[in-house]
Computed example of a mutant assay.
Amino acid sequence: MADDVSTYRARATNERANAAASSLANVRDRCERSAVAWDLMADRAERVTTQRLEREAITAQRVNGSSS
């Protein structure tokens, strides 16, 4: 999942560069909207990873705690 996050962030950066390089307002707007979408996907992927790790830690604690 970490690869996804870095890929999403890279795509957002690329879209921002495309927006900055464009002389057409509609293309700039489209690229900026795309960058926001990629950032949101990266944020969501990070949040999902954090939640998964928290659930795994709780499960491991339950398993290890109940076996002693």
Rank of each mutant, 00 (worst) to 15 (best):
14 N>P: 07
11 R>T: 05
11 R>K: 08
1 M>D: 09
57 A>L: 07
28 R>E: 04
33 R>V: 00
59 T>F: 14
20 A>W: 07
49 T>C: 07
43 D>T: 11
66 S>Q: 05
9 R>T: 01
54 E>P: 03
39 D>G: 07
31 C>V: 02
51 Q>V: 02
7 T>G: 03
22 S>I: 04
68 S>A: 09
37 A>R: 14
8 Y>K: 02
32 E>P: 15
46 E>N: 00
63 V>P: 08
34 S>L: 05
23 S>L: 10
66 S>H: 09
31 C>E: 11
26 N>Y: 13
4 D>T: 04
41 M>T: 10
57 A>G: 11
45 A>F: 02
3 D>Y: 11
59 T>G: 11
29 D>K: 14
57 A>V: 01
2 A>L: 11
41 M>N: 12
9 R>A: 09
6 S>M: 13
64 N>A: 08
48 V>P: 03
8 Y>D: 04
21 A>Q: 06
45 A>D: 01
24 L>H: 12
13 T>S: 12
51 Q>F: 06
9 R>N: 06
2 A>R: 07
19 A>M: 05
34 S>W: 06
63 V>S: 09
5 V>W: 00
9 R>K: 10
43 D>L: 12
27 V>D: 05
16 R>V: 02
38 W>R: 10
43 D>H: 10
28 R>K: 10
13 T>Y: 11
21 A>V: 05
48 V>A: 05
6 S>H: 13
30 R>C: 03
14 N>V: 12
28 R>I: 04
53 L>N: 06
58 I>Y: 05
58 I>C: 04
14 N>A: 13
67 S>H: 12
3 D>F: 08
29 D>Q: 15
16 R>T: 02
65 G>R: 00
66 S>I: 02
53 L>P: 01
52 R>V: 00
32 E>V: 14
16 R>E: 13
55 R>W: 08
27 V>M: 01
27 V>Q: 00
35 A>E: 01
65 G>A: 00
64 N>M: 02
60 A>D: 09
32 E>A: 15
27 V>A: 03
33 R>S: 07
2 A>F: 07
26 N>I: 10
4 D>R: 08
34 S>A: 08
15 E>F: 06
17 A>N: 14
32 E>Y: 11
45 A>C: 02
15 E>P: 03
32 E>N: 14
26 N>T: 12
20 A>Q: 14
15 E>K: 04
57 A>C: 06
28 R>S: 09
10 A>F: 10
35 A>S: 03
48 V>L: 09
42 A>C: 03
54 E>T: 05
40 L>M: 15
45 A>Y: 05
67 S>T: 13
12 A>F: 00
22 S>L: 10
5 V>H: 00
43 D>R: 11
40 L>I: 14
33 R>C: 04
36 V>K: 15
34 S>F: 09
16 R>I: 02
